[in-house]
Amino acid sequence: MFEARLVNSSTFRKVLDAIKDLLNEASFDCSENGIQLQAMDSSHVSLVSLNLKSDGFDKFRCDRNLTMGMNLTSLGKVFKCSGADDTVTMKAQDYADTVTFMFESKKQDKISDYEMKLMNLDQEHLGIPDTEFSCIIKMPSIEFARIIRDLSQFGESIVISCTKEGVKFSAQGDIGTGNVKLAQTHNFDKEEESVTIDLQEPVALTFACQYLNSFTKATPLSNQVKLSMCENVPLVVEYQIPELGHLRFYLAPKIEE
């Protein structure tokens, strides 16, 4: 028996909105530790890694490890039926081929449930090695989304370069070039507005705008985003989900042909 209850169903909806650009379907691995998902996008350029801890749920029970393959378009349809303030309870029997989502309104005056068919997905789990990153940048997630959106107008790629002076985002294309530089700004009163850089050595890497833009769909999940970079290693874009876990995106840097 698997049962997970989340008072803020909107958090799960935001997670779904953040990954549905990249993934058509995905397997949710449920264990007593929580719910994990790892999947590459269809082009195998980026990897999505979601971790929702069991103790972040309002109720969590998982008697037997369970992998639930879901079509994310269908899951999106189910969550479209939920109200913004609804509580969601997910339930599945052991070895079940369906999962049930029950939505309850705040006042408990409306209860709806939707049963969705599960899929058997051929999933490939990748082992992600521990990396000592050359630089770790933390910045407001809205600012990151804005910069990526702005610079995407200029070219297909964005160079992210980080030095002790700050972080620079650059793009170039037919119409010209664009550069955005951010200096470290520590705001002790408003931690979420700070830009902080933990630098071991300067690094500059090139990434495809299309994927960076998809990652920023996770902006509503978190005030801050963490970018971890190292030469010849995928970029990690991490959004913390308050009290529940995190959503990470990995993107292979572009390389000289």
Partner: peptide
């Protein structure tokens, strides 16, 4: 520039 696959960096488990 070329776009490599993410699988190039991570091991199959």
């Amino acid at each position: 520039m070329a776009q490599p696959s993410i699988a190039r960096y991570f091991n199959n488990r």
